[in-house]
Design a protein around this nucleic acid. Structure first.
Lengths: 228, 228
DNA sequence: ACACAGGTTTAGGCCAACCTAACTCAAGGC
DNA sequence: GCCTTGAGTTAGGTTGGCCTAAACCTGTGT
């Protein structure tokens, strides 16, 4: 109890935990101690301890040995951080010449330091975008988020044409590589062929033919445009 | 020893101490424990403890019961923070519509979170300005700072005309008030008269006649333009 | 010359966040 | 239905950064 009022003044650490748990428990699923520990690069005991504190703060629910789930309040706080992070990324790319492979690290630090006021000023300067440079949806200020339906390029039918709407990849090097191929949100690709046994896909974009492996093709989320 | 190599990864706290000590010890003068404590709103024992750590780190020199002074390395680190702070202020005012009375608080948090890379991008976007919105000089990236000569409006001669080059005031309300009078860097003022015994000054700026007290007049730093 | 006042430091605690080592649970193989 | 195994938790320790209370300098006034 008392949680609904005490929502402010979370530490950087707490904010990171909430964001991580949010990421790890989509659709009311549950996040495990070790998953959280791995994502945050902390030891499992550290996570156990923090989870205890956070559940006492009413930010999450913890079934010992089973898993962890955000409360409504925890989810709100997590979405606030996600909004900050993605708006900062968008701002840095749009106005300060950042490329999408390096914004993450910068946003990761800034998201804890900016005020709500600054976040909203950045949002306004950007024209209140719906997605960040990777195509990830930006939660609204009142805490709703709309995941747009999309299918991995890897599961398209040969002959399908689709627009990439989101690139679900965090690794800088991979992002840089994808950028050199022009595979970013907004790009239109046609699946020309697919090797068997999880082999690479042949695609066409910007009039060029490319070959991409399954791993990358699973990360390129598309919206179908036309089928033949 | 070993200090010269270990310059990175200072904590927020340490950065704040260095900045405070820099502010309090101009011209190789010495800062006292209680001055630092007062500026940072901490207890004197906390400062004593931190001063000990910082002197062991080689960032400052401490003569017990006498005072504290930055080493070359401490000064470098402090100037790095000052540069960040002032560039952030300038950026927020120029590009995100902040007014000069509220940027300080925002910059105070951001200065610890931005990367050198981001700072330099902001500097470039601003065209590498020499001063921040208050007229405070911005140290260069290699750590030099040029205080430009100026005299408080309070000590001008009656009849003098001068340009305000700097407003040495941190309080939001006062800054807001000065802004309403148009008294900001770049403003041109003429001293029309002065009441005796530390009384208010009568000045003219933008064709309007204003009356300002000694306290504010001491904060308005000017460069003389013409005398009669 | 000395005592007193103020500023300064030391002593001892507390809290947030982390760690390693040791213990405990839960789920699957037989 | 037991026992192993790996994940999870508890125990206990460390560090940074702060605090209050108590002891301690230092310079000033007489």
């Amino acid at each position: 109890m008392s949680a609904t009022i005490t929502s402010d003044a979370l530490t950087r650490s707490v904010e990171d935990y909430l964001k991580a748990i949010y990421r790890l428990s989509p659709e009311g699923r549950t996040a495990s101690t070790s998953e959280i520990a791995h994502l945050l690069e902390l030891s499992p005991p550290s996570v156990s301890g923090m989870v205890k504190r956070l559940s006492e703060l009413g930010l999450l629910e913890h079934l010992p040995y089973k898993g962890v789930q955000l409360t409504a309040e925890g989810r709100r706080a997590a979405l606030r951080m996600v909004r900050r992070h993605r708006l900062i990324e968008a701002y840095l790319v749009e106005f300060l010449g950042y490329s999408w492979d390096i914004v993450h690290a910068e946003a990761e630090r800034l998201e804890h330091a900016v005020s709500d006021n600054l976040v909203e000023r950045m949002a306004a300067a950007l024209g209140h975008p719906a997605v960040d440079p990777h195509g990830d949806p930006i939660p609204t200020a009142d805490g709703s988020i709309e995941e747009l339906a999309s299918t991995p390029l890897a599961v398209l039918q040969v002959g399908d044409t689709a627009e990439i709407v989101r690139v679900a990849e965090g690794d800088s090097e991979r992002l840089r590589y994808l950028a050199t191929l022009g595979l970013r949100p907004g790009a239109v690709v046609t699946l020309l062929g697919r090797q068997p046994f999880g082999g690479p896909l042949t695609i066409e974009t910007r009039g060029e033919v490319q070959v991409v492996g399954q791993a990358l093709a699973n990360v390129l989320l598309c919206r179908a445009m036309a089928t033949r």
